[in-house]
Design a protein around this nucleic acid. Structure first.
Lengths: 112, 112
DNA sequence: TCTTATGCATAATAATCTTATGTATGTATT
DNA sequence: AATACATACATAAGATTATTATGCATAAGA
């Protein structure tokens, strides 16, 4: 989604957390939200976003509802109960990742 | 390298930073160091480590010196000048990544 | 002797993302 | 009227990165 490939593997976490905060969102909206919240720093591409949403749905983490608004289709996604649990898990993995990377990269954050 | 796939894309950053701190290291040593510094949280696999070192060398970021110690081969890697510049770049990308992810995931860290 | 540790390497496969392309509607600009 | 841009979905080809499995070789410990 960006020049830096550190974002690889983060998309699922981002999607789940946004849905956790906003209850119900559609794909295009998620992409706009990410751009807005990161001040344009991170732009998620459609080629990554839509397959990722489909996968989360297939895994039972999202429910879908298709609506037509202004004569345009929108697929609204919302977290299932299992999706909420997965969100919690992903967020703690992110915290763990940051802790671990700080320990590796910043001597003053070394563990123990 | 771990269950959480957030680490995907981080290996280069880790290698460069460790070499920046330790001047000269060989592959196996890097793997051990990572395990030690993260208290076993992160284990980098050989199948990821060695190709990554070869790539960094091919890109001109690392110089190699082969030594035989205790009748065992060791390939010592050290940063080139370009490699040092790349390290600085990768570390700032990591800080940017953390800032961006916090903005997305933690409302109280929102940018602006 | 067999396992574990040290030390390198690569091939097959999987996961994730980029780039490119396609469809369709609505709005703004020239 | 024509062109560009925004909205909204989708997928296929290719690249990147990592996992898993395997291989070679030496040394130490049970």
């Amino acid at each position: 989604m960006k020049s830096s490939n550190l974002y690889k593997g983060s998309l699922t976490t981002i999607i789940l957390k946004l849905l956790n905060e906003h209850d119900k969102m559609y794909g295009y909206e998620i992409a706009q939200k990410v751009k807005e919240l990161t001040k344009g720093e991170l732009k998620i591409t459609e080629g990554a976003l839509y397959p990722s949403l489909h996968k989360l749905e297939a895994e039972g983490f999202l429910d879908v509802e298709v609506l037509k608004v202004d004569n345009r289709m929108r697929k609204y996604y919302k977290l299932t109960e299992e999706g909420t649990r997965e969100t919690v898990k992903k967020l703690s993995e992110l915290e763990q990742y940051i802790t671990t990377m700080r320990a590796l990269v910043n001597p003053k954050f070394r563990i123990g």
